[in-house]
Design a binder for these strands. Structure first.
Lengths: 205, 205
DNA sequence: CTGCCATTTGTCAGTGACTGCCTATATGCT
DNA sequence: AGCATATAGGCAGTCACTGACAAATGGCAG
């Protein structure tokens, strides 16, 4: 179907991803129909025609059934480069724009279903936050030599928080606004610092 | 012992807080001795001489045994005021400084124990992140009329991320640096925006 | 085509967090 | 003291998650 990245994926790996997508679809269906908490792993397994043990082997936790994304293995290097420059945001903007224009059709619909569940189920949002934090830490560690340790961590975490904030806003407003615009706005806030009001009408200093 | 805030606390409330502190102490002891995962709620209950059911009633979840803090009911209004001003950070700085100078002696030691566990156990950190996010959202909702919805959320979440980042850094470096300095530095990063390098020696623009 | 090996999937039994329900007990108030 | 109410404990059950072992599947050499 989608040609993930032209990368040399083994036959086995493809089958596994296909199975995971089938299981995730079944899970999303059930979660949307009955609510996350009211669905047991056993029910998901049954719907996807695998054993519960297999679901656990693939996804590890129930929350991961929502979070998982076949692109989970993000290329780290471009992001690290973006952050390492003296102003990280513009590079980041580029990367995110690219990520979003590549998202379309079935992919996009799937992402929206997942986002609705992420921001509708606290436990899932917490898991996502945890993963985002781990990811941020990896990046911050790479960037630390350039910006300093504390600054790097604060910067990276703030930016990730901004990105997730934009996603959250996008999701909870029914995806009406352009995600790229929202991302841009969020990054603007962080780029210009907190001292600048949104427009000229509120200046005090 | 500590005179929480001179507030009109009922006798009942005091006893409950005392009991919770006793249970939390027992839990922290066990978590430090054997590791968070290796301690069952039953063991905590036994050590604190209450029933497991009572531990659940008081704390709800195992993670909360670490997270809980007798000041959890934070006064919202001063923070809201801080955020609502055109530059939220300076007000925030004041509030945090006050919070930290009030932290001393037994209080401080307890906080450090808790922080070590928070940042040493992913599950606990995730729970804290969840609570911080919920808290951020409440503040952002209050602030939205002033700064706009998206901007408010991004701002508040970034600031909270910055504060937690400073705490994390403080904790994982064995509390050697001054927490107030770290907080100041973290807030500086966010206040000035991401375009400014830490010092003059790295300018690329 | 067939038997062999490795990888994958399923089965089973167990642990422990967490909840609802009901009973017992303790506490504040008159 | 005596009553009403809030609070602690006991009990049974659900479900996420794990480790160990058995079954099956699929690629591959002979």
């Amino acid at each position: 179907m989608t040609e993930h990245r032209g990368e040399p994926l083994g036959l086995r790996a493809r089958k596994k991803i296909a199975a995971m997508e089938r299981i995730q679809d079944a899970a999303l269906d059930l979660f949307e129909a009955r609510g996350f908490d009211a669905v047991t792993i056993e029910a998901v397994a049954e719907a996807a025609e695998v054993s519960p043990r297999t679901v656990y082997r693939y996804f590890g936790t129930k929350e991961m059934l929502v979070i998982w994304d076949e692109f989970d293995e993000v290329e780290l290097s471009p992001l690290v480069d973006a952050f390492a420059s003296s102003d990280p945001i513009d590079g980041l903007r580029q990367g995110l724009h690219l990520g979003f224009v590549n998202l379309e059709g079935e992919q996009l619909r799937r992402s929206k279903r997942r986002l609705r569940l992420v921001y509708g189920v606290p436990a899932v949002e917490a898991t996502l936050a945890l993963h985002a934090a781990a990811f941020s830490r990896r990046i911050a560690a790479h960037v630390a030599p350039v910006h300093g340790e504390l600054r790097s961590h604060v910067l990276v975490h703030a930016l990730v928080a901004g990105i997730l904030g934009a996603m959250r806003h996008w999701t909870l407003n029914d995806f009406k606004e352009s995600p790229i615009d929202l991302l841009d706005q969020a990054l603007d806030v962080l780029q210009h610092g907190t001292g600048t009001p949104p427009d000229e009408s509120e200046r005090h200093e």
